[in-house]
């Protein structure tokens, strides 16, 4: 029986396979974001220290991850880790690592910018009551920098989710890869299945990212209002 395009979505286990692929995508994005946030916040704080060599190295780290496109970063780690460092990681682990390092790099700049925009007076007021460096960070600077970071951080998350679409390039079994398998399997019987499969994947991505970007917008508006 030749089914028409939309039936490809529901035929057999196709839809649950797509959802399984989506879960792989989300899992990688989530783990990368969590690891990246932790590393990025710590390194971002270090970037506000008056230590020139340290600042230079961290700046270099940021610029490298900013200038090299993520596709290229994926292939750099995918090819070079096993070859030069004898580290054989499965593709999804490589992808998680790359995304985490990328998130961390972007995070350092968000955190540094926010910390530096806390007024100097606040820092002095904290010093004047005898707070140590880390106490000052913990009780005064980070709580005030946090709302400044939040919109940019949520925006970064939407970028990570969108960038997970590249996972298929290093053969991770993500939602797109599975979608392509389904398309190929049904190519003969339902050539316009391609429309429905990519359509549903398109909607999946939109459903994750739209609420996130609305949230970022809302946070940003609240931050601007708090300033006035």
């Amino acid at each position: 029986m030749a089914h028409s395009g939309i039936d490809v979505l529901t035929a057999g286990s196709n839809f649950s396979r797509l959802l399984g692929g989506l879960w792989v995508t989300i899992k990688i994005a989530l783990i990368a974001i969590i690891i990246g946030l932790i590393i990025g916040v710590l390194l971002g704080i270090l970037r506000t220290l008056p230590n020139r060599p340290l600042r230079f190295i961290l700046r270099l780290y940021l610029e490298f991850f900013r200038i090299v496109p993520t596709v290229v970063l994926l292939f750099l780690f995918y090819y070079i880790l096993p070859k030069e460092f004898n580290v054989n990681l499965p593709a999804d682990a490589v992808a998680t690592l790359v995304f985490a390092l990328w998130v961390a790099a972007e995070m350092t700049d968000i955190v540094r910018g926010a910390l530096e925009s806390v007024p100097q007076h606040q820092k002095e007021a904290g010093q004047a009551i005898g707070l140590t460096y880390w106490q000052l960070q913990r009780y005064v600077l980070i709580p005030q920098a946090w709302p400044l970071c939040l919109p940019a951080t949520v925006n970064l998350m939407t970028r990570v989710v969108k960038t997970t679409s590249l996972l298929m390039l290093i053969s991770v079994m993500d939602v797109i890869n599975i979608g392509q398998q389904i398309i190929e399997a049904n190519n003969k019987t339902a050539p316009n299945g391609v429309f429905w499969i990519y359509g549903i994947i398109f909607i999946f991505y939109f459903m994750i990212n739209y609420p996130l970007s609305r949230w970022a917008k809302h946070l940003n508006k609240r931050r601007l209002e708090a300033n006035h």
Binding site: P119, H121, Q122, E124, A125, G126, Q127, A128, I129, G130, L131, T132, Y139, V140, P143, Q144
Partner: peptide
């Protein structure tokens, strides 16, 4: 950092922690 506990300072711009 030790001494500041014994030397209190108050600023023109108050500088309470808003959080």
């Amino acid at each position: 950092q030790q001494l500041r506990q014994q030397i209190g300072m108050v600023f023109q711009s108050y500088d309470l922690f808003p959080n």
